[in-house]
Amino acid sequence: MTGEAAGNGQDGPDELYERLAVHVGQVAAAGGEGKDPVNEPMIRHWCEAMGHPVPADGSAPATMLQVWTMGGLSGHTAGTARSSAYDDVLALLDEAGCTSVVATDCEQEYLRPLRPGDRITYDAVIESISPRKTTKLGTGHFVTTRMDVQANGELSGTHRFRILKYAPARPPDPASPRADAKPAVRATRPRPVVNRDNAGYWEALERHELLIQRCTGCGTLRLPWLPGCNACGCPDWDTVPAAGAGTVFSYVVMHHPPFPAFDPPYAVALVELAEGVRVLGNVTGVPYDKVRAGLPVTLDFLTVDGEFTLPVFRSVEAGEG
C-alpha cells in the first residue's frame, strides 16, 4: 500500500516536511553484518514454517532475503545499529504528534541466490519521505528505506520497506454532528498491490481464470506467484489454469476489528486446490459458522467495486447455503 493508494489526499507543503526532506538520501544503516552466515538449519526451519520444500540445490529461498539481516531478540551486534539520521526522522515525527506507526509495503528484488556459507552485509538509505498525507488512520508521512544486501561483497538483492508514521484520526462525536457533514460515501476495499511479478495473475482473474505458476525447470507448481522456483531456484516458468475444485485446509472467522467495506463475521479460508497448491479466499454459499476444515469448495470469482476481481470459494455440499 503506497502513500498514493492509502491517502485520501496530499496536504500542502509545510515546515515539518521541509525538515524531514533534508534527510532523504542520508544513510539509514551502514556496514551492517548478518549475525550468522547463510546456513542450512535456518533455511530448513524457514521452509518448514512456510510450508515450502527446501530448494533442491540447497540455496536459500529468495524471499528469505531480509531474514539474514535481522537482529533477533538480542538485537544487532555493535556497529550495525541504524543511523542517527533515521532516528532524527522518527524523532521529528514523534514531536509533531505522529506517534503511531504501521508498516505499509515491502518490495524486494533478487539478483543472485544465497547459498550456505555466504556472509551477509548490508547498507541502507532513506530513499524517500512523502509530503503530508491524510489517510483513514490519520495524518502523517510515508518513510521508505532501501536496504542493499550483499553476499560475500556481491550485491544479491534489494529490500525496500515503507512505514506510515501518523497522528491517529479522532473518531467523530456522534452527539455533535457537523453542520457541513456530507452524505456517507460507501467504503471501498483495499486495492491489491500489482507489480511486474504478479500482474499476469491479476489480469487472468479479470478473465475469470486462476493461474498457477509452473516451474519449467522442475515442474513444481506454486501459489502465490514468485519470481523464481523455491524447489530448484529456476527463474523460468509458465502457467496452468486451476481446475476449480478444492478443499478447505484451514480457516479463520473474522469478527473484529470491523473494517470499512467488510461486513463481519465472515470466513477466510486457506484452500488446497486439486493441483496441490493453496490459496487464500473468502468462503461463500455457506454460513460462516458452518465452514470447517475438509469442506469441499469450488472456485468462483468476485468483482470488487467494479474495479478488480478476487478468487472466492463456494461450498459444494448439498443443502449448504
Rank of each mutant, 00 (worst) to 15 (best):
P61L: 02
G217R: 03
L310I: 02
N195S: 10
A242E: 01
A274Y: 00
P177R: 00
V24Q: 03
V240T: 14
C98E: 05
D305S: 03
R19L: 08
P174E: 10
F308H: 13
L210K: 02
N195V: 11
F142M: 03
E48W: 03
R170S: 14
V279M: 04
D180Q: 11
T188W: 11
Y122W: 08
A124M: 03
P13D: 05
Y110K: 07
F161N: 05
K136D: 04
E33I: 09
R112D: 10
E203M: 07
S176E: 11
N39H: 08
G25M: 12
L211M: 14
A21R: 15
L155D: 09
C215Y: 02
A267N: 05
V102C: 07
G321E: 08
G97S: 07
G157W: 00
D289R: 13
L310E: 01
L295P: 01
F249N: 10
A49W: 07
G97E: 03
T145H: 06
R178V: 14
A179Y: 00
A231G: 08
R189M: 09
E95I: 11
N198Q: 14
A6K: 03
L73I: 12
G3D: 10
G31C: 04
N282Y: 06
L273P: 02
A245G: 11
G276C: 06
L111M: 12
E307C: 05
H208S: 14
E206I: 04
F249E: 09
G233S: 04
A124Q: 01
T80G: 15
A274E: 11
T158L: 10
H255Q: 09
G31D: 03
P296C: 11
Y122A: 04
T216M: 09
E154K: 07
S83R: 15
C229T: 09
L92A: 09
L65Y: 13
P311G: 14
L299N: 07
A187G: 06
H45N: 12
